[in-house]
Design a protein around this nucleic acid. Structure first.
Length: 107
DNA sequence: GACATGACGGCAC
DNA sequence: AGTGCCGCCATGT
């Protein structure tokens, strides 16, 4: 059990560490849990995760795009939540990573 | 048990 | 700089 079960927990735990107004990327999270290049699994875990218990809206892709918006109540929910938290977006609709990218600390 | 798919990322062309 | 392909791990059919 084990490894895979821990994998989800790891993802959720990391995502919960992201403070409001900040975002992180699938790749960074994957790297934090030793999955380095398995960023897909991160998004997968979030898909299976409960949006009510995990701030999945704070996770975007490496390009700052809200790739998972389609998995929320409405395609605009993710963007709305981020804006409410104070996250700013670029003219193209992507998140300003240079301004809101959260850096994890080694636990 | 094998094949296809998926909230991505990096490298090659 | 833009587009395309392969890789990675887990899950569903």
């Amino acid at each position: 059990m084990t490894t895979k079960a821990t994998f989800y927990k790891q993802v959720y735990d990391l995502v919960r560490q992201i403070p409001a107004g900040y975002v992180s990327t699938y790749g960074i999270i994957a790297e934090q849990i030793s999955l380095r290049s398995a960023a897909r699994m991160v998004g997968w875990a979030l898909n299976k995760a409960d949006i009510a218990t995990v701030p999945a809206h704070r996770v975007v892709n490496r390009n700052g795009e809200l790739t998972g918006k389609g998995h929320f109540f409405t395609p605009d929910t993710m963007r709305q939540m981020l804006e409410t938290e104070g996250v700013t977006f670029r003219p193209d609709g992507s998140v300003d990573l240079d301004r809101h990218l959260f850096r994890f600390s080694h636990s």
